[in-house]
């Protein structure tokens, strides 16, 4: 049935960890190893210990390691906004944020918005206004919208559109998203 010869390599251990034994750091500049390092992130108010490489994005750390899949990967290049999270209260794209650089900062993801099962007003408004279809851009839209309202950029529909333009919705829910943000901002 499957007449194939498999020439795989030996299965390597899932992850190698190195301590501070990597070569030749510059003086007075402690170097984080290119190998995986242990870090602790503050995510949604709780410490999240992870082992990541310096190159690992916050997005991949959340999704591939922490199992926090609410933050979405759409383009991995900062061009779509699906991975938007809050870092120290500011909305950023987690795909272009290195996880190791996010240490010591307060990270909020979509999983941290609802309190005790009660939806954040922006989440509730998205449901009521049908501000999504496939739902894949939705966590990023909502994280962006929450920040937008706090920034004071919900003054008019035109202002909301301008300040939401970093979040692409391919299903085209834009008018409903704007309506949801308008509602949530007025409620707040």
């Amino acid at each position: 049935m499957l007449g194939a010869t498999v020439t795989g390599l030996a299965l390597a251990p899932q992850r190698s960890r190195a301590d501070d034994t990597s070569p030749a750091p510059a003086p007075a500049a402690p170097v984080r190893s290119a190998e995986a390092v242990d870090i602790v992130l503050q995510v949604n108010g709780s410490p999240l210990p992870l082992t990541v490489e310096p190159r690992t994005s916050l997005l991949d750390a959340l999704r591939e390691q922490a199992g926090l899949n609410g933050t979405k990967k759409g383009c991995d290049r900062g061009s779509c906004g699906a991975c938007t999270v809050h870092v120290d209260g500011r909305r950023v794209v987690s795909c272009l944020t290195l996880a190791v650089r996010a240490q010591g900062k307060a990270i909020t993801t979509i999983e941290g918005l609802a309190v005790n099962g009660t939806l954040h007003p922006v989440q509730a408004a998205f449901v009521a206004q049908d501000g999504f279809q496939c739902g894949y851009c939705t966590p990023g839209q909502i994280m962006s919208a929450v920040a937008l309202i706090e920034e004071g950029h919900a003054g008019s529909d035109a202002e909301i559109r301008s300040w939401m333009s970093g979040n692409i919705c391919r299903c085209g829910a834009y008018p409903n998203i704007v309506a949801a943000i308008r509602d949530a901002a007025q409620e707040g």
């Binding site: 402690p30 170097v31 290119a34």
Partner: peptide, 22 residues
């Protein structure tokens, strides 16, 4: 993305020193 190290310099001297080393 290829692997890299990330140095966190404790000041301008350390930063540009590391920059001078490539």
């Amino acid at each position: 993305m290829q692997s890299f190290t990330l140095a966190a310099p404790n000041g301008l001297d350390a930063a540009t020193d590391a920059g001078g080393r490539g």
